Amino acid sequence: MRSKLFVPGGRPELFAKALAGPADALSFDLEDSVPADAKARARDDVAAFVASPAMRRAAKLAIVRVNAPGSAWFEDDLRAVMVPGLALLNVPKLESADAVRAVVAAVERIESSGGHEAPAGLLVNVETPRGLEQAAAMAAAHPRVAGLQLGLADLFEPHGIDRGDAAAVHAAMFAVKMAAAVAGVFAVDAAFAAIDDADGYRAEARMSRRLGFIGKSCIHPRQVALANEVFAPSPEEVAYARRVVAAATEAARAGHGAFSLEGRMIDLPFVKRAEALLASLG
């Protein structure tokens, strides 16, 4: 999931266009982009499109960001969007493992009522100071948690933190990646509001890739190509990973757990990284 494109749930005329584009994942938004008086219609439109033959045939992940637990729309969102084809249920404003487990309980209540298909997993937003503090606990709260998604606007803006401070961005990214690593789930990077600032988007994306994030959110189609470019392994990286795996195989045959390759000492953590990169190629 190099690129995850947010699609406003209240704009059904954009759904097919987004599906035809190059984003790896489509994240249909029922939260911030949809006003209160349009949420019921948006919910129905999104559910119908996610379950449509076109969406299910596409080689894309279908994600729906529902309204926050405790809101007037949360339960109705769940009942509507738990349809065949939904890959990830994106849940905002969570701040504890108990809150994650409460979402799971709500999902299971709907499942037990019949007629609903369970989502493949939960994508938990980390977008508040308390959420950042509890990120590792949330990642490990339940097997349904597939990944953590960083939300820098919500995390920074209310508290006067400068998004232009690379050290602050790095600190938040590192914390979320380490929290995801505790539970063995993925981390996906935040959206970037400056649509015309390709260099700024690229810089954040490169930072998050160096920190082990799998991809970055996009709020405009023009950002998708940037994310795909940054998070695609280069031919040199792929070739080196293949050399590492091949050398590790030879070393294992010789009974060695560590070996030297091109002037560098290689052991199991480096082999695992190379294997993961090659596995990501499909």
Rank of each mutant, 00 (worst) to 15 (best):
A183Q: 11
A193H: 05
H142N: 07
A225V: 12
L150T: 14
D29M: 05
L14I: 01
V185L: 07
R273Y: 00
M55N: 06
A36I: 04
H220S: 12
A48S: 11
G151C: 07
P143V: 04
S52R: 00
L211S: 02
M138E: 03
F231Y: 15
H220F: 02
M207L: 15
F192Q: 05
E95R: 15
G10A: 10
D162M: 00
A102M: 00
A97W: 06
S113W: 10
E236S: 10
K39F: 03
H256R: 13
R109E: 14
A179H: 08
L155E: 04
S234P: 03
D77Q: 05
H142F: 04
R101C: 03
D196Y: 09
D24G: 12
L94V: 12
A87P: 00
A276M: 08
A179P: 08
E13R: 11
A38I: 04
V224D: 09
S260R: 11
D32Y: 07
P221R: 03
V185Y: 03
D37R: 02
A42Y: 07
F213S: 06
R222S: 15
P235K: 06
A54R: 12
D267Y: 05
F49H: 01
F74I: 08
A225L: 07
P69K: 05
V34S: 05
I110A: 15
A205P: 04
R41P: 04
A168P: 00
P119E: 07
R273H: 06
P53A: 04
P221S: 01
L89M: 07
P158M: 11
V169T: 13
Q149C: 12
R101S: 06
A168N: 02
A23V: 12
A99W: 00
V66D: 01
F6G: 02
P12E: 11
R41L: 12
R163P: 10
G114K: 08
V182A: 12
V104L: 07
L132F: 14
H116A: 15
A36P: 07
D196A: 15
V224C: 11
L281P: 01
R210S: 15
V188C: 09
A36T: 06
A58R: 00
P235T: 06
P143I: 09
A146E: 14
H220E: 14
E250D: 13
P235Y: 01
D44Y: 01
R79I: 03
D37W: 02
K4G: 02
A166S: 14
V169S: 05
G255K: 09
Y240C: 00
E229Y: 04
L277W: 00
V66Q: 02
E31H: 08
E117H: 09
D44G: 09
Y201H: 11
D199W: 08
E204H: 15
H256S: 09
I110L: 09
K4Y: 03
F174W: 12
L14G: 02
L123Q: 09
G21L: 05
D24A: 13
S217E: 10
R130T: 15
F259G: 02
G164N: 13
E117Q: 14
V245S: 09
I110E: 14
A135C: 11
L26P: 06
